[in-house]
């Protein structure tokens, strides 16, 4: 059975336009699936729906989110929260705002272990120390006692990664985890996430707008446009021959640093018009 299976998930702004249009995708433990698309395509929305953190202005109008065979959307809120907390985790986008400024680092890693999974404090602290060592943070004892403002952005992202892996989750959603970081740190962090994912055998949903990152980290990808999956493929197939015109244009639009003379190739208007027509046809069909 697939670990995470999203079936026909539809989400819309309350009383407003659709944000996700019958999205379906699967992720298995040990696999990395990239979610790509331009801003507003709904790639982050999928991760938020899975983790139960959709903003209150948004509602799920249909579909299923099957986690290990159980539809999260049919569970009572408390059970859903606990289940997500015990088996899923988030690596957030901006490490500077994702740690609570008035708590020390230690409790921010161990809280879930102690409160949700019932570990003893000593076990949780030992686990936190081991994780900080695994994400290559020197002097874990000192960092655990530090406040977030005493640490650099790269350090904080490492801490958030360690924290995400703390409960040995089956599924992690990484929401553009390197976008807010300095380019020199981005590569280290990507490598760290990929390495941890491989070692722990986690299923990883990797939200990004960077196809270059997808080609390095993911095995599968879903290309989104206006909340619709326009292409679902393995990374190898996709980079060899994208099937959908929009994803092909997206791939062509990726700047090639090895060939500066090639210039930039924005997605052609004709392709945009075609994919918009597809979305409109979808909306007519489902209405």
């Amino acid at each position: 059975m697939t670990y995470l299976s999203i079936r026909d998930l539809s989400v819309r702004l309350k009383g407003g336009p659709s944000l996700l249009r019958r999205v379906s995708l699967d992720v298995e433990p040990g696999e990395v699936r990239g979610l790509v698309g331009e801003s507003g395509a709904g790639k982050s929305m999928i991760g938020k729906a899975v983790l139960g953190i959709l903003p209150p202005s948004v509602e799920i109008t249909g579909g299923q989110i099957l986690l290990d065979g159980t539809d999260l959307l049919t569970l009572p809120p408390k059970d859903r929260r606990r289940r997500i907390g015990a088996s899923c985790a988030l690596i957030p986008q901006d490490p500077l705002t994702a740690l609570n400024p008035s708590h020390r680092i230690g409790p921010q890693i161990t809280d879930r272990l102690v409160d949700i999974l019932g570990w003893t404090r000593a076990d949780a602290e030992a686990r936190a120390k081991a994780l900080l060592a695994e994400v290559q943070i020197p002097d874990p004892d000192r960092v655990l006692r530090a406040y977030p403002h005493e640490l650099s952005g790269g350090m904080r992202q490492r801490i958030l990664i360690a924290s995400a892996f703390a409960a040995e989750p089956k599924l992690i959603v990484a929401d553009e985890p390197t976008t807010a970081l300095d380019v020199t740190v981005q590569k280290q962090i990507l490598k760290l996430i990929a390495g941890m994912q491989a070692r722990h055998g986690t299923a990883l949903l990797f939200v990004t707008h960077d196809l270059g990152v997808v080609s390095k980290v993911c095995q599968y990808l879903s290309v989104l446009y206006a909340g619709m999956v326009v292409e679902d493929a393995t990374v190898v197939d996709f980079f060899a021959a994208p099937r959908h015109a929009y994803s092909a244009a997206l791939l062509a639009a990726t700047p090639k640093y090895t060939d500066p003379a090639a210039g930039l190739n924005p997605v052609p208007d004709a392709v945009i018009d075609a994919v918009r027509a597809e979305v409109a046809a979808f909306d007519r069909g489902s209405a």
Binding site: L51, G52, K78, G85, C88, P92, A98, L99, N100
Partner: peptide, 26 residues
């Protein structure tokens, strides 16, 4: 609405606990 509160929600905490522990002091 801040990120660290959202992150705490994904850890399995309920609304009341998130308000008291994550948001109140700040």
């Amino acid at each position: 609405n801040l990120d660290y509160v959202t992150l705490a929600r994904t850890k399995g905490y309920g609304e009341t606990r998130v308000i008291l522990r994550e948001a109140l002091r700040n």
